[in-house]
């Protein structure tokens, strides 16, 4: 059963009682909340995700609560709670959705050590995965949004999840949080995509979420073999250029970029050196989204011919 198969009313009821349980890539997530606009956004963005039974075992049980006391009438706050732990300061109540997404990132990055997890976008074309490890501000999400609007499948915008037994990339297709200038840029570049509301003045500036394509959600259990590791760097006015990256340097950059490399120990070392050896590694500098998307698509298609 898909999330799309239930009504908004039923979704709101589930979230308020037994919890709204759905599949997010390899994870089962359960959300408890009475925040109806939050539930509506989950139902809208993840409509093609599998809805789980009310008694399904979930890795993450997340409460999104409304703050108590007198302040709840003046400036209500949303509180993120996992297993009765509140890891963050409360957010404005109307920013509950970005808070939930960032909170779920925190849960995955800090607990899912059965995987090696890179801070990276991952997309797939012709059965091969392109891994885009990057620092914040490098234009990773914008590039990822551009690629999926031109036929690439979204595996993840935030996590390069590697199955350490097989070396395959594990999908976790979720919304892409576009920030500040990239919101208008991507809305213009991909007018057919689905976008949520703009959350103004969050802790990361203005944020607008781009929905994962329905086909990516439908194929979220389909892993992909990594073929390319590309380190993107956006710089305004920069000529678009793809340079071969030394594999040792690529390994070092990925080990610094991984959320949990130290925790995964020798197995993580084996996984990451394997990825650096197996994939073609490049650095990409670009100041133009369309040029970057075209270049990467050509790279993928040339490998196919």
């Amino acid at each position: 059963m898909k999330i799309a198969d239930i009504s908004i009313r039923d979704g709101i009821k589930k979230a308020a009682t037994s919890g709204l349980r759905y599949q997010a890539g390899p994870f089962a997530v359960c959300i408890y909340t009475r925040n109806t606009s939050l539930v509506e956004l989950i139902l809208r963005f993840y409509n093609q995700s599998t809805l789980l039974e009310d008694d399904a075992v979930c890795q993450f049980h997340i409460d999104v609560l409304r703050s108590g006391g007198l302040r709840r009438f003046i400036r209500p706050k949303a509180i993120f709670s996992i297993d009765a732990i509140r890891p963050f300061d409360p957010y404005p109540y109307d920013q509950a959705f970005p808070m939930l997404e960032w909170g779920l990132n925190w849960c995955i990055g800090s607990t899912a050590h059965q995987y090696l997890i890179l801070h990276s976008a991952v997309v797939e074309r012709n059965g091969k995965a392109l891994v885009l490890p990057a620092q914040p501000g490098s234009g990773k999400s914008t590039l990822c949004a551009g690629l999926i609007s031109r036929g690439w499948r979204l595996l993840s915008d935030e996590f390069g999840i590697i199955d350490q037994k097989t070396g395959m990339m594990v999908p976790l297709p979720r919304v892409i949080p576009l920030k500040n200038e990239s919101i208008e840029l991507v809305q213009h570049y991909a007018p057919e995509a689905v976008f949520g509301p703009i959350f103004r003045k969050t802790r990361k500036g203005d944020v607008c979420h781009m929905a994962p394509p329905p086909s990516s959600l439908q194929r979220q259990l389909e892993q992909a073999k990594p073929a390319w590791v590309i380190f993107p760097k956006y710089k305004h006015g920069q000529k678009t250029e793809l340079k071969v990256e030394d594999k040792g340097v690529a390994f070092t950059r990925m080990s610094n970029n991984a959320f949990n490399y130290p925790m995964t120990m020798g197995r993580g070392f084996q996984t990451l050196t394997g990825l650096a050896k197996q994939a073609q590694c490049f650095s990409l500098q670009s100041g133009d989204l369309d040029e970057a998307v075209t270049l990467l698509t050509q790279l993928a298609d040339e490998c196919e011919t």
Partner: peptide
């Protein structure tokens, strides 16, 4: 890695 090596 050809010109150097990594050791865990």
């Amino acid at each position: 890695f050809n010109t150097h090596a990594f050791m865990y």
